[in-house]
């Protein structure tokens, strides 16, 4: 996708970001959501993140392949992110594992 379509999709993502962000701040006292809806919406970010991350980790060239270098790297990231607060470490360890397996062992 290039040219004008690229910018149209940026504009769309921009609207999809700033309508929710601005919503209640801009509307002020005039709006509120029912608690049940707010409750269900809490799960949207986790579900969306997992739905986007999972195929990138488990699928190799269109086929389900659970044991691949990306999976090993993802496990390493998971362990690091659970144990340490350092914001750089998951990137260093995750990329280290992935590149080590790919370049060092030829996976």
């Amino acid at each position: 996708m290039d040219g004008i379509w690229l910018w149209i999709s940026f504009a769309l993502v921009s609207m999809a970001t700033h309508f929710p962000r601005g919503s209640f701040i801009v509307l002020g006292q005039r709006a509120s959501l029912p608690p049940a809806v707010l409750g269900a919406l809490r799960y949207a970010p986790a579900a969306a993140l997992a739905a986007i991350v999972a195929p990138g980790v488990f699928v190799v060239e269109g086929a389900l392949q659970p044991f691949n270098p990306k999976f090993a790297a993802a496990i390493a990231v998971l362990v690091v992110a659970l144990r340490w607060k350092n914001p750089w470490l998951p990137f260093i360890i995750g990329m280290g594992v992935l590149l080590g397996l790919r370049k060092g062992f030829g996976f």
């Binding site: 970001t17 919503s23 209640f24 969306a48």
Partner: peptide, 21 residues
């Protein structure tokens, strides 16, 4: 699809916005 995916990811902002309004 691009718009809906972005919206799903940004729904947390709707909650933030409601909470801080």
């Amino acid at each position: 699809l691009i718009g809906l995916t972005a919206l799903a990811l940004n729904l947390r902002f709707l909650i933030f916005s409601a909470a801080i309004a």
